[in-house]
Design a protein around this nucleic acid. Structure first.
Lengths: 331, 331
DNA sequence: CTGAAAGCGCTTACAG
DNA sequence: CTGAAAGCGCTTACAG
């Protein structure tokens, strides 16, 4: 790769002049400029971003930590992040943790210390302290989807309303025995959706139907098992709410195998709204979270924080967006 | 952030000694070492990766260019890339192009010139020349999934066999009127799958049934429309092959709406094998591509090329993996 | 209008 | 065993 020095030599000027000409950072005589441009072109010069970054103390890179990409809403969120980042001149570095705290820790430790100017974390497995450490060391950190640390800015969805609204909706459809398939209650999104469910069910004076399978996970199989269990325990069950779509797919599968008429005998709602819901034989009603928007908002917030002058950093911000109900055939 | 200099000052030694101690790069007196470690710990020192990178001329970062992440096999591939990269000590930078050549070009231009030590490109929209340029400038480039440039290393699947095998499989199931839903024939994976289809159909003396909808895209709606068209044009159609899963979902949807018995009257096979296929009411048979493996292989190949001494660069390599048929209910 | 110099934070021959 | 110096490729006051 050609460097500034090479261009300078070819154009018979100092490197500083080349830098000024190429960056348009102060007046350079047109003739000199022309020579420099010609030289740069001839050599196929591209500035070395690393050197620029070292100089500026900024890499224009944001690290994103996600639990997984495949079959999850995270991939859509990530697209939102990346797109907005590109527009703002920031590159997006990713780390996939599989919800493993050790992997997450490893990722975070790499990201700090120069790999990224800021970190958007979608997972969060017991590394709260590390996160606060990183933040304290001057690297902006933002939680997305899962808000575990109150002292760290976040972009989330109103999960309580999400659960609440789903129950209300089903109630209006005539459902009286509504089951819930959730996830690990250590994770805020699951806990809060369950809170919303509980609130609505109690207000309406309905029975609470929880699935209590072993280790809650975000998977098709888990959705399937939980649905089986809910149906076994309550033969009057007339609705199932699943925290995430692939659990919903599992529930639909279980219902299909039992020959239950989905959307009539038993209604199904997902609380996450992955686009696959609309592509099924029986398309699935869901509370859709504005995934792309959440990603771009998060990126914008973190870039703002990075670029704000030291004196006027925005401080703690929690942005909460709303889910919207998209009614489909499963209800 | 504390720097080497800070640590040196606190430990009362030269920065070079700190560097040597921390990197274990030559003998340092145990006492000095202890002081240095203590100082580093006290200051919470983390080396500045940028500076290291500038010095070493290597960033330990690979750029990955993908058409999209959501609802595509690419997210699984990307997980494979990232995981392997992490193990090899490389970070993964992503760029989402939406198959837009201009966006792709922008991404590539950023990635060169220091953003990445190597580039894995999954898209490829008419930027072959730029790719060769980048490669010529010393940055390894690797094509994944789509092989457009013969002079650039690649990891792909044997798409011809994939199409061929699907037809053979359906033939053995008794199908005689097999329709194909493909994608843009400018893209090698689609073209080759179609070639395989054609080869098998001709060998077996069957009719060729192509969907000829307007602009081929990788979408649910496109799959739906094409299926409709295939069914309208040939009322004896007894099988549909879809290039990618979400087209397959569209086809299944179309069949469902017509009341056709999937897996009996009309069989459906996808040629890509996104995991969602196994989670449907009628689970979908598919030729599964080893997505995760493709990602990790690609990462390993490019790291090898980067780290090989100048004298013994591996040179052009094309790795072709096999798809495997996973039979499910749709056939 | 342009050059010479300093410095971003690190590593690594070179001395001693 | 450890320090002083040079240099990775850039940018930016500071002179002139």
């Amino acid at each position: 790769m050609a460097t500034l020095k090479d261009v300078a030599r070819l154009a018979c000027v100092d490197v500083s002049t080349v830098s000024r000409a190429l960056n348009n950072t102060s007046y350079v005589h047109p003739d000199t400029k022309a020579r420099i441009y010609a030289a740069a072109k001839e050599l196929g010069y591209h500035p070395n971003v690393m050197a620029q970054a070292l100089r500026a103390g900024r890499r224009h890179t944001i690290g994103v930590v996600v639990p997984r990409l495949h079959l999850a809403i995270f991939s859509e969120i990530l697209q939102g992040i990346e797109e907005e980042g590109r527009q703002q001149g920031y590159a997006t570095l990713i780390c996939v943790t599989e919800d493993n705290p050790a992997t997450e820790k490893e990722c975070l430790n790499r990201l700090r210390g120069g790999f990224a100017d800021g970190i958007i974390i979608v997972a969060t497995g017991r590394n709260g302290r590390l996160l606060r450490d990183i933040r304290a060391s001057g690297i902006p950190v933002l939680q997305l989807v899962r808000k575990q640390e109150l002292r760290i800015s976040s972009v989330t969805v109103d999960y309580v309303s999400c659960g609440y609204d789903a129950v209300q909706f089903l109630y209006k459809k005539g459902c009286r025995q509504i089951g819930l398939i959730s996830g690990s209650l250590h994770l805020a999104p699951y806990k809060e959706r369950q809170d919303g469910y509980q609130k609505a069910v109690r207000e309406l004076g309905l029975d609470e139907n929880y699935s209590e399978c072993s280790e809650p996970v975000n998977s098709f199989e888990y959705g399937y098992e939980c649905a089986e269990q809910l149906l076994d325990e309550n033969e009057d069950l007339d609705a199932i709410i699943a925290a995430v779509d692939i659990q919903g797919l599992g529930a639909i599968r279980a219902l299909t195998e039992r020959g239950a008429k989905i959307g009539e005998e038993v209604r199904v709602v997902s609380l996450t709204g992955h686009a696959v819901g609309g592509m099924l034989e029986t398309s699935m009603t869901s509370m859709e979270m504005p995934a792309h928007l959440m990603g771009s908002k998060a990126m914008r917030m973190i870039v703002e924080e990075i670029e704000a002058p030291q004196a006027q950093k925005p401080g703690l911000q929690h942005l909460v967006l709303a889910s919207t109900l998209v009614e489909r055939e499963s209800t």
